[in-house]
Design a protein around this nucleic acid. Structure first.
Length: 892
DNA sequence: GCGGACTGCTTACCT
DNA sequence: ACAGGTAAGCAGTCCGCG
């Protein structure tokens, strides 16, 4: 398609280039403030700058941030960001690329379909040859090229409808994606505009890293070819991107009710903006009775400005947003930016002066795009489950700015002394500034981890920032795989084709309603165990995909001679003739992560900056790896293939059961295990080595020593244990005391118990620990009896996961409480966490309850079951803990 | 009319 | 809109009970 771009990525020598462009960019300390620079234009320029859009014939290198479709010209539009000048440039496609789809009809057959040939968007037909992976053959197809994306799909009379779905391929890929893949674009890397053309800017990166990574793969292998494509993505430094953050406050006369961003009925009273150098500004609306307001006390570098007219305040904000290259908000998509737009409309500010474009996203979500720059809504990014779990290891468990910043920054929001509407400007300024400041800090902590991660994920998935930060991991993987199909000339199959050819799963899941059998959880040996070694398979499922060549096209392939290559425990077989694409890609990512980036991210001989970069790459790759198996087994995924997913878990079960057998034959007792891990009782070095060698040789998966416990407390419950490592770190898994819905008083009591256990060194120490735990439990039961805890600490906090009215089968307690809140006039929507207490008659929302309402007996039961999970494992009976005599007192 | 046994629903967790 | 497996608590149902 585009020779210049692809050839560079394939590794031909890039043209000479000055190195300036691939520096990480000026750091905040050494450059001028972005916000200040923008505000200097206040006096000389109008709201919307006359230079917008900036579409130069030649421009400094910039990071490719976004790929959009320009409705006016009907062309793909790229946004590039040059960090030194802090300016965005646009580039419109000049290659004549057009939307298209593929069909198996011949030219002459198509000519008979008048609705296609005479379609107003129809341009031309082109013959092309594609590889059909499902049938391992080549096929001639016709590409139908059209003027605009809607001619292909999205309307009732679109071409794909006239061809018939079963005769059209690749007809539901968004045009911006289609363009990205065909032009081999990598968002997150540097490009430049030269004489009107877009050119990649080669990045210099560590020769040593490149050499080491190349060394992981056999010369001439498919892996070694593909890894050349990946090297620039993994190794080019992430640019430092100057940026702004924003937060607004809106007057709201009713307590507990968030102002409606659609109606936008109430005035915007405060807007705070910050840049990454710590420079900030707070705009304040002075209401009539506030003319002698107290001056706000803001940090150095943060100024404030009063407005008496709201319209002027909005216009000042818009003036800044027209010049903002990257804007970070927290929930700006659905609140701040949306509110600003709708509020501006009420004032009659012309649309052409509003720097924000709102778009309906999935569900009830809105998206707010900046017309000039790009907008990251951190709320949406942190809400991404893969980011929460894999990148941030579940460090935050709720998604409010308060929770996330406390967890990641150790700093929270300002406390509100009163309703927003009743606060004087100086307090509002401080409150609003803090939110803006936290939002900025979330993009900066750990060496700009969040932005670097976003850039890496953009590169690997070949998606622009806007889509990347707003879509889930299945989307990222889909994009990665579609890109590879296009690059290699493979036809992207339709979902129905895969299902029709491969069929359904053949095993039966343990859980009713699931599609196939999953992992094995070993029955724990209840009790206290000293000196336990945990071994686990490194990235088990990705390793299996790699080692056993599992992809949608290789499972149940069409070659009769492959049928003998059976998957244990299933009726499936795997291709022996062709390497699967998913298997190839995931295999490379696995090897590069496990063998290169992960060890280096922990290597103490590296500088901190180096380690942090290795760690970013490692985390980004982990996200793709961890989800790669899941998406194949997800029915909505376009490359869904149940037999492939089922084959992966089947090999997983095979690996763990064979390893258990081997351990036992070596004389090692297996105490517990889950999916890819085994807990071994006092194994010797020799036994461990033999076990690790065995899995490598016989199973072709890597087994590593994961950790060593001084002691491990196992109850008879699976997925429940407490282990103390040799270094004194306590691992707690699955225990009630750690769950977020456990009342706070009990979480604290539980942590006190954990602290007692942390100090245990030898079996002898347990009798002291036992006494102390006994006293602890008694103390808390007595305090309950005396109703000493603040009622908030007794609250059970549970999430409403769907709209309240769709709880029709049963009415769980948190839903009862939520309905009471609703009756009292509060909005409750999916995702909200409801805090309630158990009362004698039922439940009450914590806001409506007093300590006297609380049903103490129910809370004692909770204490009992929480403590029991640990005591069980220590061989202590609860009755024994409380003491026979006191039992009557407490449970009489 | 009531309690125990049972199933199903819901949430939060583990890998 | 990544998967399946497990624990826990409660809601709702059925059954037996002179």
């Amino acid at each position: 398609m585009s020779e210049d771009l692809t050839s560079w990525i394939q590794g031909t020598k890039p043209e000479e280039e000055k190195p300036a462009s691939n520096e990480s960019g000026p750091t905040p300390a050494s450059r001028r403030s972005l916000l200040q620079t923008i505000m200097e234009s206040f006096s000389t320029e109008s709201i919307r700058p006359d230079w917008y859009p900036r579409v130069p014939k030649s421009a400094l290198p910039g990071v490719l941030l976004n790929i959009e479709y320009d409705g006016q010209t009907g062309l793909a539009k790229l946004k590039l960001y040059n960090p030194s000048s802090m300016k965005i440039y646009e580039w419109l496609d000049n290659s004549g690329h057009h939307p298209y789809c593929l069909t198996d009809y011949s030219r002459s057959e198509i000519e008979k379909i008048k609705d296609v040939i005479e379609h107003k968007g129809f341009l031309k037909m082109e013959e092309t040859t594609k590889v059909i992976l499902l049938h391992d053959k080549e096929q001639k197809l016709v590409s139908i090229v059209v003027r605009d994306p809607l001619a292909i799909g999205g309307r009732r009379d679109s071409i794909r409808e006239h061809l018939g779905r079963e005769h059209s391929w690749e007809a539901d890929i968004r045009y911006t994606k289609c363009y990205t893949y065909d032009r081999a674009l990598t968002p997150g890397l540097y490009y430049k505009i030269k004489e009107g053309n877009l050119l990649p800017v080669p990045q210099k990166f560590s020769v040593q890293d490149a050499k080491r990574i190349r060394g992981l793969f056999e010369t001439g292998s498919e892996e070694s070819k593909l890894v050349e494509e990946y090297l620039p993505l993994f190794l080019s430094p992430a640019a430092y991107l100057p940026r702004l953050s924003l937060d607004i406050e809106v007057e709201s006369p009713i307590a507990d009710r968030i102002p409606d961003p659609v109606a936008a009925e109430n005035p915007v009273i405060t807007v705070a903006l910050s840049d990454d150098t710590g420079t900030g500004v707070v705009f304040l609306l002075l209401r009539s009775n506030e003319q002698d307001a107290k001056e706000p006390n803001l940090p150095e570098g943060v100024s404030h400005k009063y407005f008496t007219e709201e319209r002027q305040l909005l216009e000042a904000v818009f003036h800044i947003l027209w010049r903002t290259p990257i804007l970070a908000t927290f929930n700006g998509d659905n609140f701040d930016l949306r509110y600003l737009v709708n509020r501006a409309k009420r004032f009659g500010i012309p649309t052409s002066d509003i720097p924000i474009r709102l778009r309906q996203g999935l569900g009830s979500n809105f998206e707010a795009h900046l017309k000039y720059g790009v907008h990251i809504d951190l709320y949406r990014f942190f809400n991404n489950r893969s980011i929460q779990i894999y990148a941030f290891r579940n460090r935050y468990r709720e998604f409010r700015l308060e929770d996330i910043s406390q967890a990641l920054l150790g700093e929270g929001k300002r406390e509100l002394p009163d309703l927003i509407s009743r606060l004087p400007p100086d307090i509002l300024a401080d409150y609003c500034w803090q939110d803006t400041h936290l939002t900025m800090k979330l993009t900066q902590f750990d060496n700009n981890l969040v932005l670097s991660l976003i850039l890496l994920l953009m590169r690997v998935s070949h998606q622009g920032l806007h889509d990347l930060t707003r879509s889930a991991v299945s989307n990222w993987i889909r994009s990665l795989l579609y890109y590879s199909h296009r690059q290699r000339g493979y036809l992207i199959p339709r979902k129905e084709e895969i299902e029709a050819l491969k069929g359904k799963a053949t095993t039966e899941a343990v859980i009713k309603g699931r599609k196939y059998l999953g992992a094995i959880v070993v029955e724990p040996v209840a009790g206290l165990h000293f000196d336990v070694t945990v071994v686990d398979f490194a990235s088990l499922y990705p390793s299996i995909m790699k080692a056993y060549n599992i992809s949608y096209e290789t499972v149940r392939c069409t070659h009769p001679e492959c049928r003998s290559n059976e998957v244990p425990g299933t009726s499936h077989w795997i291709c022996t003739k062709r390497k699967g694409l998913t298997s190839l890609i995931i295999g490379i990512i696995r090897d590069v992560r496990v063998e290169h980036f992960k060890p280096r991210s922990k290597d103490k001989t590296m500088t901190e900056t180096q380690r942090s970069w290795y760690s970013v790459v490692e985390q980004a790759l982990k996200v793709f790896l961890n989800a790669s198996y899941g998406v194949i087994g997800a029915a909505h995924f376009p490359l869904y293939c149940a037999p492939a997913a089922e084959s992966i878990t089947a090999y997983g079960r095979y690996a763990i059961t064979e390893t258990i057998k081997q351990a036992e034959s070596l004389g090692v007792t297996v105490l517990y295990g889950d999916t890819d891990s085994l807990f071994l009782a006092k194994p010797t070095k020799e036994q461990l080595r033999k076990l690790i060698d065995y899995s490598e040789q016989a199973l072709r998966v890597e087994l590593d020593v994961e950790k060593e416990y001084r002691y491990l407390a196992l109850s008879s419950r699976k997925k429940n244990y407490l282990g103390v490592t040799k270094s004194g770190h306590v691992d707690i898994k699955g225990l009630t005391g750690k769950k977020r819905n456990t009342p706070l008083f009990l979480q604290k009591a539980f942590m006190q118990m954990v602290d007692i256990l942390r100090q245990v060194q030898t079996p002898r120490d347990f009798s002291t620990a036992k006494d102390r735990i006994l006293r602890l439990a008694r103390e808390h039961l007595a305090r309950l009896e005396r109703r000493e805890y603040p009622i908030e600490e007794l609250a059970i906090r549970m999430q409403i996961t769907k709209p309240l009215e769709s709880y029709v089968k049963t009415t769980p307690q948190h839903v009862k409480a939520a309905r009471q809140l609703q009756d009292a006039g509060r909005d409750v929507s999916a995702g909200d966490i409801i805090a309630f207490v158990k009362t004698v008659g039922g439940v009450k929302p914590v806001e409506q309850a007093s300590i006297q309402d609380v049903d103490i007996a129910k809370y004692k039961d909770l204490v009992k079951s929480t403590f029991e999970q640990v005591l069980d494992a220590l061989g202590i009976e609860w009755v024994e803990t409380i003491g026979i005599r006191t039992l009557d007192t407490f449970f009489g």
